[in-house]
Design a protein around this nucleic acid. Sequence first.
DNA 1: CCTATATTTCTATATTAATCGAAATATCGT
DNA 2: ACGATATTTCGATTAATATAGAAATATAGG
Lengths: 118, 118
Amino acid sequence: MARRSKKQETGRYADMFAAMGSQPRLRIMRLLLAAHPDGMVVGDIGAELQISASTLSHHLEKLRNEDLVRVEREGTFLRYFANIDGLQELLGFLYAECCTRNRAVEPQRVVCREQERL
Amino acid sequence: MARRSKKQETGRYADMFAAMGSQPRLRIMRLLLAAHPDGMVVGDIGAELQISASTLSHHLEKLRNEDLVRVEREGTFLRYFANIDGLQELLGFLYAECCTRNRAVEPQRVVCREQERL
DNA sequence: CCTATATTTCTATATTAATCGAAATATCGT
DNA sequence: ACGATATTTCGATTAATATAGAAATATAGG
């Protein structure tokens, strides 16, 4: 990865966290992760989450800008996918900050923990 | 962990991501993680990050509300610490969504990747 | 109890984000 | 080229967030 100032780096990850930091967008991400690797078309996302078309479009734009989703045109539909590279980058950053760099959180507490959600 | 509706759960983690989703607050978190487990007093955080006292207080309040930091009084000072439990919860959620539940991201790409940052 | 210092709360302002209906754009099938 | 459907962009409004100076609160030390 290219060298990047700490300020730029912090700004970039802050923006990624902010993109995940609204309930509608986090629901979109969870939905696309559940649908992975098939993705979902915009209309189906909106129907599932009950979000109006224009609002959904804004949320998808923000997620796109932060590399958390990617999109492919499929005829008259647009199909959105969770962007694994971006998610891995964000997850790797958080893991590094908590577990690798500062050894604040023990890795096995992240990786090997109970799965309490269905 | 208590059973919690998917809506509540998503709202909770969205709020945690939002708390991490501003540059000043992410810098605070990184600073407290670097200082872990010693923590830092408010004045030193503000001096290091060049944030005015009242603004810093608001950011710390938000991080406290989302269980990302904790605080102990130390005489006339307040010492803030990265809250490992909260960070572990957030990291575990993201890890579960990406790696465990949907197997979108391969675990070793998170855990065993190159460390490019100093 | 009074002063000094640390931090928060109050008050105010400016910026940014969320939402939605309507209009515009894009693609397909004919 | 036209009509139908999918999605985005535009325009506007409302809500939330970020910031900071001043005032208030909390603690320590004398």
